[in-house]
Design a protein around this nucleic acid. Structure first.
Length: 303
RNA sequence: GCCGGGGUAGCUCAGUGGUAGUAGCGUCUCUCUGAAAAAGAGAAGGUCGAUGGUCCGAUUCCAUUCCCCGGCA
């Protein structure tokens, strides 16, 4: 007898496709709570710039994994996975349906595929040291200490090389094969797809609106809270270019153009990630999603 | 109208008498196990404004012509 896993509904899609609106409607309909999967919305005080849902827009649906990190500190997938699973289990205990909603593919995958991440936290001073080596040196070093990982890693990708070295140095042994456990949930993936043109227009519209309601002021406020310019640059998109604008490195028009363009590119990159996952049911509208979820939740399992 | 600068990849520009550049940006494809709005890889695009001439050979030299920019009038 196969034990039945708790159900998890995953809603993904690139930026500006209306994930938020659809997820609220669906959560309302199916007694759900939302777990956000967005690598920037986890930070406190980053609301307008990340397009974070407002209290009002939630319409009473509980949201988890928003505002769980301090923007001055670095947050990462490892932390995300722990917190997200905790939230999902809490929702299940309340006899509600968890909706995992967001655009950060890696964060989502870590939960849906139950990836086993090496339990080594980032060590920023070690990384700074390794950063001094050339890419080739890093790769050769890794080959010495961990043959296996050296065969499947991208030898040009310094960031990955450094991470791999970090793990070996801390554990003092080679990295075990990358792996995942059996998933903890019965999953359905719903993807919201739109044309690049539609996305471009939606980005434009929402950018205009957010500038009006104080997106620049939000960045100034973060600065007052001692978030460095460098840190703001790291966040990318609106935070990066507003920071550059406030430092007079670019003018207002340029700021808008860059946010627009890079947001569009970001959306395409998100699609590159999502396209690989054949489990995703791509939908055009809310109705299709509703139908899929209804079947998923109520039809008797055939196994 | 005169003087000067320019018209080469979607854009900004390199460049050379023997049919153009590993250029930057963009575009497309892709990778992805603790920075993921991150980081990395690959590919496709021009026949060098137009016409005529010199030359074995012109994108490169010459002439004419069209267009753009700056200055003078």
């Amino acid at each position: 007898m196969k034990k039945t896993l708790p159900k998890l509904i995953v809603i993904i899609g690139p930026t500006a496709t209306g994930k938020t609106a659809i997820s609220i409607a669906l959560a309302k309909k199916f007694n759900g709570s939302v777990v956000c999967a967005d690598s920037r919305q986890v930070y406190k005080g980053m609301d307008i710039g990340t397009n974070k849902i407002t209290k009002k827009e939630m319409r009473g649906i509980p949201h988890y994994l928003l505002n769980v990190a301090n923007p001055k500190r670095k947050f990462s997938v490892g932390q995300y996975k722990v917190l997200a699973e905790k939230a999902i289990n809490k929702i299940i205990k309340q006899k509600k349906i968890p909706f995992l909603v967001g655009g950060t593919g890696f964060y989502i995958q870590t939960v849906t595929d139950n990836l086993i991440l090496p339990k080594i936290k980032p060590d920023w001073s070690l990384r700074a040291n390794l950063e001094k080596l050339t890419t080739k040196q890093l790769f050769n070093k890794l080959k010495e200490v961990d043959q296996r990982r050296a065969t499947d890693i991208d030898p040009n990708n310094r960031r990955r090389l450094i991470r791999a070295m970090e793990i070996v140095k801390k554990t003092r042994k080679p990295i075990t094969a990358l792996s995942s456990k059996k998933p903890d949930f019965d999953l359905i993936f719903i993807g919201i797809k739109k044309s690049n043109e539609e996305i471009g227009l939606a980005i434009q519209k929402r950018l205009k609106k957010r500038l009006k309601i104080g997106m620049i002021a939000e960045v100034k406020k973060l600065r007052k809270q001692a978030v460095s310019w460098k840190r703001l640059e790291e966040f990318g998109l609106e935070y990066r270019f507003i920071a550059q604008y406030l430092q007079k490195k670019i003018d207002y028009k340029e700021m808008i153009e860059k946010i627009q363009k890079e947001s569009e590119q970001y959306g395409k990159r998100q699609m590159t990630w999502f396209k690989r996952d054949k489990r995703i049911n791509w939908i055009k509208n809310q109705k299709e999603a509703q139908k899929l979820i209804k079947e998923f939740l109520f039809s008797k399992s055939l196994f």
